[in-house]
């Protein structure tokens, strides 16, 4: 009898409706207003790569050891270097990073012995051309310049 009354008065449906009603409070809004309000990504976020430079003298930290290129599963890093006869070390000449094939696994970052290559918190990586996704040394050192929208 009780079950019959419950089904007549649609108790099960109103129970669900009550849950929906409870969640109507505007303090439960979770939507992010993305271009207007930039989401705060985590400190360890693996986004756009960057080649760090020494802030004191502006020279690159990279020692052209090629470990990142060997660690990369997709072999998308190409490191160019030439031997400097004065210091007897390898100097970095070119560095290309093909973002179109990158899966942001972070293995290159782990392999780097001097913390020169780093995956940063930038996440806006769209480009108009395929070539635009291949970053050269200059681009990697400057980092991306994301568009700021005003609302």
């Amino acid at each position: 009898m009780n079950k019959f009354l419950r089904s007549i008065f649609l108790v099960d449906l109103f129970q669900g409706l009550w849950v929906t009603f409870r969640n109507q409070n505007p303090k439960y809004i979770y939507t992010e207003q993305y271009p207007g309000e930039r989401p705060k990504v985590a400190e360890r976020y693996r986004g756009a790569p960057r080649l760090n430079i020494n802030p004191d003298n502006g020279e690159t930290l990279c020692i052209a050891c090629n470990l990142c290129a060997l660690a990369c599963p997709e072999t998308l890093i190409v490191v160019g270097s030439e031997r400097n006869e004065q210091t007897r070390r390898k100097d970095l000449t070119t560095f290309t990073y093909d973002l179109s094939r990158c899966m942001f696994c972070g293995l290159c970052e782990d392999a780097c012995p001097v913390d020169a290559l780093e995956l940063t918190q930038d996440f806006e990586l769209a480009a108009y051309t395929r070539d635009g996704a291949i970053w050269d040394r200059q681009m990697l050192e400057e980092g991306p310049r994301p568009t700021r929208y005003k609302f």
Binding site: Y30, V41, A42, E43, R44, Y45, R46, M103, F104, C105, G106, L119
Partner: peptide, 22 residues
């Protein structure tokens, strides 16, 4: 999805990726 977001935030804070975490 609202609750899943909280889990993904923990993943993001821990290892830097939300879905393909490695």
């Amino acid at each position: 999805f609202r609750e899943r977001e909280e889990v993904l935030k923990i993943f993001e804070n821990y290892c830097g990726a939300r879905l393909t975490t490695h």
